[in-house]
Write a protein that binds this DNA or RNA. Structure first.
Lengths: 201, 201
DNA sequence: TCGCCACGATGACAAATGTCAAAGGACGCT
DNA sequence: AGCGTCCTTTGACATTTGTCATCGTGGCGA
């Protein structure tokens, strides 16, 4: 097979990792890394400029996280590279039109395979990730509960959360309390940890 | 120069990253990756078996973190690869006898340089890391304060912390309170975030 | 030796957090 | 329309957390 090369854009904030992956992919005869960016908010510009066939996005990046960046690129063939299995991320990614999702502890072969599949219009989901996403299911939190807990995770007090959401303090306490209950936690801190663990935050 | 190759052991939990770095280092004519492990608690065994010249350790690993692993290998030439700049880590690393410390967003050249320097008995510290470690200085927390905050970060209540540390609940509250004050925080959650940010946890 | 200071420890008090029962509204189902 | 269910919102109350004044101890310099 000697068709044109698959043009790949790589977005990851860690230079060493990004360079290493680029080198690995460059060893594949049919893949070509045409551009690299280190910030989520540079992805859109780079896509317009280089018109890659497939975009590989890390989730954790400064400026804008990979999932948000993906949501701004409808129709683009994309693969999310996730540091660790937060099942909630997989749902958001699929909702954003991402067709490939693999954890960083997959092998390089797996990444190359995913790129080829996604470029051909197919899907590639890491089997373990998919399974754990099934197990974890949807977030049990309502919108309000998630917002309140999310602000609490930034260190905001009940009063500050109430102001930000235009609610009474009592209401905020109630949302936090029910979030704690739904997450099987006993206080704000364990609830935050549990929600972040699942990618529900 | 045609001396023997520098034998490197690579410890990192993410397969893709580890493989990519191994490939990159393998391209250097004087470096040879003789073994790879994915868990901190496998490092000691692998070192005994393969006798590498230099060990490259990621900080975040299952089983045992890279710093703890380093503390168990006195005399071994080691380099810590840190995901992100927690200045406190640098201190712990130096105390453990680590002579190389670079962030993951350094370039591959920088890693290779660090390996050669450390192998030759020298030091290699990323300039930016070193500067921010100077800025951040030592942890202002006393041992008790750090233990209490650390347990709180796991989600423990005051009662649980008191039991674990064999203290009165009032005493624990006092330690947490003074930790909060020292960190310029307003509550437990922001204190935990601040301490983790600096690597003081 | 004598202060001085930092750390460990404690309980009383104030403030923030977590729980509960309840009421209104939106939505789908019969 | 009538019913049930779920989300949102609220205030009262219980519990947990944070602050403060205080005391003892051990090191360190004058």
């Amino acid at each position: 097979m000697s068709g044109p090369m698959i043009r790949v854009l790589l977005a990851d904030d860690e230079h060493l990792i990004r360079g290493a992956i680029a080198t690995l992919l460059g060893l594949e005869p049919d893949l070509e890394v045409v551009a690299q960016v280190s910030r989520g908010d540079e992805v859109a510009t780079a896509v317009r400029e280089h018109r890659p066939d497939v975009v590989v996005l890390d989730i954790e990046m400064p400026g804008m996280d990979g999932l948000t960046a993906a949501e701004g690129l409808p129709g683009q063939a994309m693969i999310i590279l996730s540091s660790f299995g937060r099942p909630g991320y997989l749902r958001r990614a699929l909702a954003a039109g991402v067709r490939g999702f693999i954890p960083k502890d997959a092998s390089a072969d797996e990444l190359a395979t995913a790129i080829r599949k996604v470029h051909a219009g197919g899907r590639y989901l890491d089997p373990e990730m998919a399974a754990s996403a099934m197990m974890a299911g949807d977030s049990p939190l309502t919108d309000r509960e998630r917002s309140a807990l999310s602000l609490a995770a930034e260190g905001a007090s009940v009063r500050q959360i109430a102001t930000a959401l235009h609610l009474t303090e009592g209401t905020v306490r109630n949302y936090l309390s029910s979030a704690i209950a739904k997450l099987g936690a006993t206080n704000r801190i364990t609830a935050i940890r549990a929600a972040q663990e699942k990618g529900w935050l």
